[in-house]
């Protein structure tokens, strides 16, 4: 049984590795490709918003991608994974039609599982017993600090990010 399981899991790994090699992605904003996962490295090309890329590898905040004849590292946040194109920003209907926000009772059961919906939440009655259960798991700040220290987590001095320019792209996902 064990000897069978090992090749089976290897096969799974190979399949996963192969699909990772060919993972499609879409460029979300005009950006540069670098020769290394660092903005200090040599520029290896550039990609335009909407371009298709193949994602080859990931390292920290960087993805190694091929786009046409260029291969290089691009910022993780400049690419979306998956074959959905620009998604909410561009091809709204491809994905937008499926996750309709007009009719919460319309349950699209692709996964065979029913998600939470408006009605579940609207009808919900206060459950004091569950809330009391929640309280029993609460961590004190000292306990949380100790747990962080166990894993060598140290606070880092990171400045707040600047707020963006007012013009955001409109989204067919609604502005609710």
């Amino acid at each position: 049984m064990k000897t069978f399981l090992i090749p089976a899991s290897l096969l799974v790994l190979c399949v996963a590795a192969a699909s990772a090699n060919a993972a499609p992605g879409t460029v979300l904003r005009n950006d540069k490709l670098y020769s290394q996962p660092s903005a200090a490295s040599k520029q290896a090309g550039s990609v335009a918003k909407g371009a298709s890329v193949n994602i080859l590898a990931k390292q920290g905040g960087w993805l190694r991608v091929t786009s046409g004849k260029s291969t290089g590292w691009i910022r993780l946040l400049s690419v979306r994974a998956g074959a959905g194109g620009l998604g909410g920003a561009g091809l709204g209907d491809v994905v937008g039609a499926a996750t309709t926000r007009s009719d919460p009772s319309r349950v699209v059961a692709v996964a065979g599982l029913r998600g939470l919906n408006d009605e579940d939440l609207k009808q919900a009655r206060f459950n004091g017993a569950e809330l009391a259960k929640l309280n029993t798991w609460q961590a004190t700040p000292a306990q949380a600090r100790g747990f962080a220290a166990q894993a060598g987590l140290k606070t880092a001095d990171v400045a707040a990010l600047p707020a963006p320019q007012p013009a955001q792209t409109s989204s067919p996902w609604g502005d609710n």
């Binding site: 959905g84 909410g88 994905v95 989204s171």
Partner: peptide
């Protein structure tokens, strides 16, 4: 972002949040 769009498990998420691709783009900026 890579999940199939027609998935009932994310219908409430997408009703109440922008699409992950839009969130990635805004965060990237």
């Amino acid at each position: 972002a890579g999940l199939p769009a027609k998935d009932s498990r994310t219908s409430l998420l997408y009703k109440t949040h922008p699409h992950p691709a839009d969130r990635l783009a805004a965060l990237g900026e």
